[in-house]
Simulated scan of single mutants.
Amino acid sequence: MKKIAAVALVVVIAIVWLLNTSLLAPPPSGNAKILAHRGIHQVFHSEGLDNDTCTAERIETPRHSYLENTIASMRAAMESGADVVELDVHLTPDRQFAVFHDWTLDCRTDGSGVTQETPMSELKTLDIGYGYTADGGKSFPFRGQGAGQMPTLTEVFKALPEGRFLINFKSERREEGATLAVLLRFHPEWRKQVFGVYGGTAPTQETLRLVPGLRGYDRQSTIACLGRYAAYGWTGIVPDACRDTLIIVPGNYARFLWGWPDRFAARMQAAGSEIILLGPYSGGDFTSGIDSTDDLAFVPEGFSGYVWTNKAETIAPLLGKRPGAATDQANRQ
């Protein structure tokens, strides 16, 4: 009986291996694509961050003049090689989407109060570079440079008609999703610019309900997809929660996914989903990026999904120099 059990175990292991090894699966065609988080922006130290941390007060020594979520920073990201730019929105009392990260204005700007409670007409008067400092408040290198630079989502669509954007809802207001759906209904030419939506569950799910074919995710849908796939993905069955969506994969957990990288990618591609590869996850939110040469080790050779980065100006050229990238690019032309 012990021999039979041992043989049975070996057979099961062999079947699981055959179903999930990438050695027997060709890599998906195409190059890795860049998803630029907040455009090109001032990066900051992430140690000890919490929800109340003012990140503008802990930026690294500036290497460029771009401020996050501005049209200039998005254009620069696209010129650096970004295929998609992530941006953050708040629906204001005058029914416009302000493109700005923070829930409140006090950290980055010379204003105060809750972003979504402030009319866009007032937000347009603020200096969004006011609060940035890299030396503990001894100097503020961007004061005066961000005056009037907070855009509306409409302005972004008009200024960057060739851009594609991942829209982050910062609230849990369902009306934000409905308002975005109405905006796209009245301006169908902008629909192709929306790569996807994510963030608050209520607005994200409302947008996905009202805009056919749009992809998106929230924390719950991500956990449902990856959790169910971990449970029975070894069979090759893709859970419904992983179909026709955006699947975010933390780089340090990717190797635990059944079939990673090539067979997993093929399954998700067949299910109508796109993969977004993040940097290492360590218990915070899902915005850690592939931001250094060390982080590039998380990106498999032949990966053709989206690479989330806070440093598009650095990572896009490095990905372009990886072995095989030139061949993949030539095959796409």
Rank of each mutant, 00 (worst) to 15 (best):
H37D: 00
D218C: 12
A32Q: 01
L35K: 00
L184S: 01
R174Q: 15
A202N: 08
H64V: 07
L246N: 00
G200W: 14
E176T: 06
R143M: 01
F186Q: 14
P203R: 05
A266C: 14
A82L: 09
L246P: 01
D135C: 04
T70Y: 01
L160G: 01
Q42R: 07
V89N: 04
A231D: 14
A159I: 11
Y132I: 02
N31F: 10
C54D: 15
P212F: 09
Q205S: 13
V238C: 01
Q269A: 12
G259Q: 00
T309I: 05
G131C: 03
Y232L: 10
L257E: 09
W17K: 05
T179C: 01
V211T: 06
E274K: 13
K2L: 14
G39Q: 08
R267V: 06
Y232Q: 09
R75M: 08
I315L: 02
C242L: 07
P141I: 01
T222W: 11
P119F: 11
P280I: 11
E155K: 12
G200P: 06
N310C: 03
N69Y: 07
S46E: 15
S46L: 13
E206C: 07
L67H: 04
A270I: 04
K3I: 15
E117D: 15
G251V: 08
T327D: 13
D52L: 15
G30M: 10
T179K: 12
G233S: 08
L105V: 00
G284P: 03
R267D: 08
R219G: 09
Y229E: 10
M1I: 15
A14C: 07
H64K: 07
F44W: 12
Y217K: 02
P93G: 04
V299M: 04
N331A: 15
I71R: 00
A5P: 05
E274D: 14
L257M: 12
G199Q: 07
S282Q: 14
T201E: 13
L166H: 10
K124C: 00
G30V: 03
A271Q: 07
G131Y: 03
E313Y: 11
V249T: 06
P62L: 02
L210E: 13
L49W: 12
I237A: 14
S112C: 08
V194W: 05
I237F: 15
I247K: 03
V197G: 00
Q149G: 04
G305Q: 06
A325D: 12
K170E: 11
